[in-house]
Amino acid sequence: MSRQQESYLKVIYDLMLRYGHASNKRIAEDLNVAPASVTEMIRKLKENNWVQVSFHKITLTPEGEDRVKNLLDRHRLWETFLLTKLDYPPDKVHGLAESLEHASDGQLIDRLNKYLAYPKTCPHGGPIYVNGGQEVAESLWDKEDQGPFEILQIIDELNYNHYERRGLLPGAQLELRKKFSENMTVRLEGKNATLSKKEAENILVVKK
């Protein structure tokens, strides 16, 4: 499987976490590619039994989901190592982990996992599935009651430092104040803050 195909599978998985399924339009927006390119790639992924399509709703097959979770485990283990052992700045680790996950064989990943004492989550709050980590959170945007909620994961790891600057980190607690069509107001650390719809979709929370 090519890196491009793996990128598609990861985006589809992220969209499934946010919306329950992916669509050509949302994949094109997230990857910043032409819709025609998405159509062609989905066809290839479907032929290889990585994805399935029903009424324009795109989801991963069990084989596709297993593949994504393996990739995410590798990525998150490297991010954990870079952040906690080498003190890399949060905005630098995503790209490095992306390269390292592809350059590592299974034995190296097993040794890395053992060295890190088998963490269940990465510093971004993402579950490490091989160690028993699970998706238990839901998108903040899907919440209707006030909460309070605890942030478990930031999906948008590429722009993680943006959320970090605003105090939107795993473990932080917030309450929903008002929700509009394209943004919401929350109470965070005693202050009101406005989040765009996309920001709120990238924040996974559980109710406290």
Rank of each mutant, 00 (worst) to 15 (best):
T185R: 05
V186C: 04
K198W: 09
P90Y: 02
P62T: 02
F149T: 01
K178P: 09
E6S: 14
G64P: 01
K92D: 14
P35A: 08
L168W: 03
A97K: 01
P123Q: 02
S139H: 10
E182H: 14
S37Y: 05
E164K: 15
D142L: 13
E6P: 12
L195R: 03
G95N: 12
H162V: 10
L112T: 02
V53H: 10
K69Y: 02
Q134A: 05
E138L: 11
E138M: 14
E40L: 13
R177C: 08
L195P: 00
D14K: 09
A172S: 07
L158Y: 13
F81C: 00
V93R: 03
G190E: 05
L169N: 04
H56C: 06
P148K: 06
P62N: 03
L176T: 03
Y115F: 12
I58L: 11
A117L: 15
I128Y: 05
N48E: 11
D73I: 05
N161G: 11
H56N: 11
N202E: 01
L176K: 01
H102A: 10
Q173G: 09
K25Q: 14
R187F: 03
L176R: 00
Q107M: 04
L31N: 04
V186P: 07
E98Q: 11
T185P: 01
R18V: 15
V205P: 01
Q5T: 03
I109F: 07
Y118M: 11
E135Q: 07
T59G: 06
D142W: 12
V38M: 10
L140R: 00
Y115K: 12
Q146A: 12
R67Q: 14
P119V: 05
I154H: 06
M16Y: 04
Y115Q: 09
N49M: 05
E164H: 15
L152C: 11
M1V: 07
N202P: 00
L86V: 00
V206C: 05
K25G: 08
G190N: 01
Q134S: 08
I109K: 14
E201F: 05
V186K: 03
N49S: 06
